[in-house]
Nucleic acid binder design. Structure first.
Lengths: 255, 255
DNA sequence: CGCGGGACGTCCGGTGGCTGACACACCGTC
DNA sequence: GACGGTGTGTCAGCCACCGGACGTCCCGCG
């Protein structure tokens, strides 16, 4: 847990209702979780849980974005799933597992509501809206994982780069966010030079712009034209994302 | 639903306790499910649900084996998950979804206990052992899906062939089962000639033997030596499989 | 102002697996 | 005994991506 110190929940952007699952709860249930949890600011690569390690807390992202990552024996790594304001980090804990062979860490820095496992269970025993919301989210996550299997097996790296950028853009709801080619290559399970060449082409075409670890989405529609159907298949399963309009300040917000 | 007519539950091999989830239920809960459901014999490629289609029943495999499959726009297909006696086909239904963008069909013919969705919900409202069992199984399935993402992204087809054979062997608990190269290629998201060449090598090395759609596992330990760690990572998460000894008639049963 | 390191660009050889096509071997059927 | 369907073996050509290695630019820092 390399999270920085907790932030005052009253701070701008710290409203738990920024998270789609929390926003769907009745006021009383939301109030309980807000009281039992703590809004935290997380840095890039801040670990939520390690492979095989105990899962002691779950996180409801507000504007942060997280990755579920599998690390293979040759120390290469691949992102297996993305988690933003539409979901929750730590599903195994909800499902009764105390650990997972995979890792979860922060991909784009921001805020998340951290809730301890005992506190989560307290609220869950009410057997109210949270349980239903999480069941729905688990279902959508399984679709995401399954589609990632197919996409990573059959589609080209360029399409997957576009999909990754769109997926992240949907969750940060800002046209620019920190991202290095090295990090992106790890997420895709590809080599950095491969990413460098393909990303360079996307930039030449005016779809994106980046420099020294800062990525900017210039032409969403263009990226959508370059990605595969997997993007839409996954997006459709997350109502929280499909419904949410991107920040109006973003000139290239999704349709 | 291209299943054949129901089989008398009393038939040899039709005992619901062959399924690990059902076997873990208290006698009363098991009896209810057995009474509400129906043991069916399923043929190869018998569909359980289609992409986007309604999920009206769930299946608890007894000796049949099923695949979750994603079909891409170019009509290629990839297996995203395997379901045998350790699990249940139709998780989206349990989680509250009435459909899935993926398909599920029978991979190795055999028996399964079919239970209608209303009947399943009836038993689930008891909020007893079945709910817990399914939560645990969902958690393991997510690990399987996630590891499949990583494996299909990073590992070679030969390793994945070995993993597929071992995974299926664990579930049929017989050294031989029907399998064509064409089918295996579809599961792996690879071309048939690729599978032909690699499988030929495995046969030359004496690890397997096959002819005209019939596969026989000759040397489990040899296959285990050729596969990747993903096999074990997934296997560990399914206690029902790790515990179950393979049929003693099988000379090359797992350790 | 010089230095070091992080982020990015690029090159070449190698290769696994794809594209597409063709040939054979076995099986049941007529 | 001829025949078509199914399952399998094999080939040449090709391309995306890997593996490893350099070079360059820019920033922060001493």
């Amino acid at each position: 847990m390399s999270a920085t110190e907790p932030t005052d929940p009253g701070t701008h952007g710290g409203d738990p209702r920024a998270n789609a699952i929390l926003a769907a709860l009745p006021p009383a249930e939301l109030a309980r979780l807000r009281a039992l949890g703590e809004v935290q600011e997380l840095d890039v690569r801040a670990s939520v849980y390690e492979p095989g390690g105990a899962i002691t807390d779950v996180y409801f992202p507000l504007d942060a974005v997280f990755s579920m990552v599998a690390v293979l024996q040759d120390e290469s790594s691949v992102e297996v799933g993305t988690i933003g304001f539409e979901g929750m980090v730590g599903l195994p804990a909800f499902l009764g597992s105390t650990s997972s062979p995979h890792a979860a860490y922060c991909q784009v820095p921001g805020r998340a509501l951290r809730v301890g496992l005992p506190e989560l269970r307290d609220v869950l025993t009410d057997d109210g809206a949270l349980h239903d919301q999480l069941h729905q989210y688990v279902s959508a996550t399984m679709v995401q994982l399954a589609q990632n299997v197919a996409c990573n097996t059959g589609h080209q790296v360029e399409q997957r780069i576009c999909r990754w950028l769109l997926t992240t853009h949907d969750r940060v709801r800002r046209p620019d966010f920190p991202l290095t080619q090295e990090f992106l290559a790890q997420m895709l399970g590809a080599r950095r030079p491969t990413v460098s060449e393909l990303a360079g082409r996307l930039q030449q075409r005016g779809l994106i712009s980046y420099s020294r670890g800062q990525m900017t989405i210039l032409d969403r529609a263009g990226l959508e034209a370059c990605t595969c159907e997997c993007y839409w298949t996954i997006r459709r399963t997350f109502p929280g994302i499909a419904d949410a309009a991107t920040d109006p300040h973003d000139a290239s917000s999704p349709a």
